Simulated assay, not measured.
Amino acid sequence: MTEPALRIEHLTVRYPLGGRRFAHAVTDVSLTVAPGEIVGLVGESGCGKSSVARSVMALRRPDAGRVLIGGVDVTALRGAALRRARRDFQMVFQDPRSSLNPHRTVRQILTEGLAIQRVPRPWDDQVDDVLRAVGLDPATYADRRPRQLSGGQCQRVAIARAVLLRPRLLVCDEPVSALDTTVSAQVLDLLRDVRDRYGVAILFIAHDLAVVRGLCDRVAVMYLGRICETGAVDEVLARPRHPYTRALLDAVPRLDGAVPAGEALRGDPASNVDPPSGCRFHPRCAYASPRCAAEEPVLAGKDEAVACHHPLAPVKAG
Rank of each mutant, 00 (worst) to 15 (best):
D128F: 05
V67F: 04
E37F: 07
R166K: 15
Y244A: 09
G301H: 10
T111G: 01
D125R: 13
A23I: 14
D73E: 07
A133Y: 09
V127S: 09
V187H: 00
L41P: 04
A139H: 10
P260E: 04
R84T: 02
N101R: 08
F281N: 08
H103T: 15
A313Q: 12
R97S: 07
I227R: 10
T12K: 03
T111W: 00
D128Y: 09
T245Q: 14
L170H: 11
T182P: 00
A58K: 10
A258K: 09
Q155P: 09
P102I: 11
R54V: 03
V219A: 06
L191M: 15
I159G: 11
L100H: 05
S98F: 09
T111S: 12
V163L: 10
A58V: 01
H24F: 02
R166E: 09
L136Q: 13
T111D: 14
R104Q: 15
A34Y: 00
G48P: 12
P240G: 06
P62T: 11
R241P: 08
H10Q: 15
C228W: 04
R21P: 01
A238T: 15
L149V: 08
R168I: 05
P122T: 05
R20W: 00
R132N: 07
V26G: 00
L149G: 04
V56T: 03
K302R: 14
I159H: 09
S30C: 06
P314C: 13
T230Y: 03
R54S: 08
I159T: 09
G318Y: 00
I8K: 01
P240C: 10
L114G: 08
F89H: 12
R156I: 01
L31I: 02
A201F: 05
S177L: 10
V92P: 04
A162H: 08
R144M: 09
M91F: 00
P314D: 06
S45I: 12
G231L: 12
A85Y: 02
A307W: 10
V74H: 00
A23E: 04
A288Y: 07
D137K: 03
R218W: 01
I38N: 01
P146M: 01
G70P: 13
E229W: 12
L31T: 01
A317W: 02
T105G: 14
A307R: 06
P102T: 12
H207R: 03
R145D: 00
S55D: 05
D63Y: 00
A220W: 04
A5S: 11
P269F: 01
A158I: 11
T181W: 00
S150W: 03
L164R: 07
G225D: 01
F281Q: 04
A261L: 14
C285R: 05
P146G: 06
Q126K: 06
K316F: 00
A142S: 15
V233K: 02
R291Q: 15
S50Q: 03
